[in-house]
Computed example of a mutant assay.
Amino acid sequence: MSKSLFTSLAKVAALALLFASLGAPALAQPINVLIFGDSLTSGFDLPEAQGFPAQLKRRLLADGYNVVVWNGSNAGDTSADGYARINQALQYNPDLVLVEFGANDMLDHTDPRVTYRYLDAIIRICKARGARVILAGMLSLPKNGPNYIVGFNNIYPTLAHSNRVPPYTFMLAGVYGHPALMQSDNEHPNALGAAVMAAGIAPLIEANLRSIRVASPTRRRAPLLSRR
């Protein structure tokens, strides 16, 4: 083999390796999904494997999505608490954030205008950091009275419209009010309830994952933080 031919073949091989190395991360890089909310999505009082984040991750993986699901939810948090720790939560470098707050605001009878402002700020910060946002809705208990119910329940569709983010009408849809799906406190989902929640919201999350994958096929590397 002549020296020139050997040199040409070596260059072709080097280019092939270069293109392969450039293409591989796009296939291997997972999409980061952050669950950011309160006890309804934290896996409260459940083994980690049975909580909502873990069950959602299994559902998404089974449906063929390459994801890392981060549990950024904290039991007892109000929308104000979420706002206070949003920058810490965004250290997970999420591509998609499921924002789920409001249940504790409602139980505390917080002015809906206050809840609105904090949720609006959380959404705007997430979007400014380049993440897509899904807003999980909450509904007021009847005992709060008609004026509060209207003001509170309108928070979520109004926010979704003004911020142009997809809403999920009620995080506990198909679960709340069903004793077989709730813990003994009648406030939090049990393991089966968490599975129903994951199945209910999965189609909306997957639609957004497809949009992320199409818009930016090269995923950002997950940060070096311990996974919950």
Rank of each mutant, 00 (worst) to 15 (best):
K3L: 14
S4N: 15
S4R: 15
L5T: 14
F6Q: 15
T7D: 15
S8Y: 15
S8D: 12
L9E: 05
L9C: 12
L9A: 08
A10E: 02
L15D: 02
F19T: 13
P25F: 00
L27D: 11
Q29F: 11
I31C: 10
I31W: 00
L34T: 01
D38V: 02
D38G: 05
S39D: 01
S39Q: 02
L40D: 06
D45H: 13
L46F: 00
L46T: 09
L46E: 05
F52W: 02
Q55M: 02
L56R: 01
R58Q: 15
R59F: 06
L60Y: 07
L61H: 12
D63I: 09
G64C: 10
N66T: 09
N66E: 13
V67H: 07
V67Q: 06
V68L: 13
N71E: 00
G72K: 09
G72H: 04
N74S: 14
N74W: 05
D77F: 01
S79L: 03
G82M: 00
G82L: 00
Y83R: 15
Y83C: 05
A84W: 08
N93H: 09
L96H: 05
L98I: 14
V99G: 08
V99Y: 06
A103R: 03
D108C: 03
T110D: 10
D111R: 00
D111L: 06
T115F: 08
Y116W: 07
I122R: 04
I122G: 01
C126Y: 03
C126R: 07
K127P: 09
K127N: 06
A128P: 11
A128I: 06
G130K: 08
A131F: 01
I134V: 14
G137V: 04
L141I: 11
P142H: 10
P142M: 12
K143Q: 14
Y148F: 15
Y148A: 08
I149D: 07
F152C: 08
N153K: 05
N153A: 03
N154E: 12
L159K: 11
A160E: 00
A160N: 06
N163A: 09
R164L: 08
V165Y: 02
Y168W: 13
F170W: 07
L172M: 14
G174H: 05
Y176P: 08
G177P: 07
A180W: 00
A180E: 14
S184R: 12
D185K: 08
N186L: 11
N190E: 04
V196D: 03
M197V: 01
M197T: 03
G200F: 00
I201Y: 04
L204C: 10
I205D: 04
I205P: 04
E206S: 08
E206C: 10
R210F: 09
S211H: 09
S211F: 07
R213Q: 13
V214R: 15
V214I: 12
T218R: 13
R221E: 12
P223C: 02
P223F: 00
P223V: 01
L225Q: 05
S226D: 14
S226Y: 11
R227H: 13
